[in-house]
Design a protein around this nucleic acid. Structure first.
Lengths: 153, 153
DNA sequence: TGACCCATGTCAGAATTCTGACATACATTC
DNA sequence: GAATGTATGTCAGAATTCTGACATGGGTCA
């Protein structure tokens, strides 16, 4: 019968979704004691690697809309983890930076997240991990080709 | 000590999230003309492969809560794509089945989704695809080991 | 039989995220 | 200089999803 039907268990798309979902659940589990979510962590991690990123930059990096990132940033700012200048140094972009408190917070979270990633990757050789990495990169690239940039319109 | 920070671009976790996000966006884009979402499609696809699945089964298969799946099922039922018996044949589980209309709907969606998956996989050899598939399966398994079953508690 | 545990369907409320819209700032073009 | 296009931050409302809670059905085990 449906020979051409996508077999869910052997569909890369389905597995991608399952793996991503499992990873998110595992990360949420280890982050919960720290009172953080994956998006919290992503934002902080992004800022540690590239200080001065804007709200829109962070949104793209965390795969949410800039409106969502904006409410997150306000919470992080209120809690003293990040800072934004009152006025834009140039244009409208407000560069966000980690505070020392935010950096300490990130260190805790980073340790927890690293343990999850290590757990996910255990049982795979260095070479297998590299292959998986490149396969994922290739999929992302293929998906973005001849693709309209997403956003608000 | 200078614990090597997770380099986002070379982190399997980050790539996983990015790939999953890109795939979802691409699927949403091709499904939008059909007035469907990824969750819609997932539900229908699941039912085509295993008729009679319960609400909870579908929720697990689509990676959402059973409450979310329940509202979706009501919409699909209202639109005539699926059917549920008024009373449970056994226990409390209500088996859901596709209607002929739902099956036709799925065919359209399935064609669109297949094109996206093909686009994602283009440029990868059969062997590379197989490697990626098994890598993903392994990650999911590792993540689920010594893990509490998720749910409502 | 009865106590217990687990899974299911469902209701209600909260939290999160998204869509739509607007004004502003800069670059490009005429 | 003026018009246009793109990108940003932000406000407001809607839609979606989740968390919490409850009663029911069925299995296990004493």
């Amino acid at each position: 019968m449906g020979q051409d039907r996508i077999e869910l268990e052997s569909s890369v798309g389905y597995l991608l979704k399952e793996a991503s979902s499992s990873l998110r659940a595992a990360m949420d589990a280890v982050l919960r004691p720290l009172d953080m979510t994956v998006t919290h962590y992503s934002c902080l991690e992004l800022l540690a690697q590239r200080p001065g990123l804007s709200n829109s930059d962070l949104a793209r990096g965390a795969f949410v809309t800039r409106q969502s990132m904006n409410v997150l940033l306000h919470a992080l700012e209120r809690d003293g983890f990040v800072t934004r200048p009152a006025e834009a140094p140039a244009g409208r972009t407000l560069p966000v930076t980690l505070t020392p408190l935010g950096r300490r917070r990130l260190e805790q979270a980073s340790t927890a997240v690293r343990s999850v990633e290590a757990r996910m990757l255990r049982g795979m050789t260095r070479e297998e991990q590299s292959h998986a990495l490149h396969a994922l990169q290739r999929m992302v690239r293929s998906l973005h080709e001849d693709d309209v940039p997403r956003g608000q319109g």
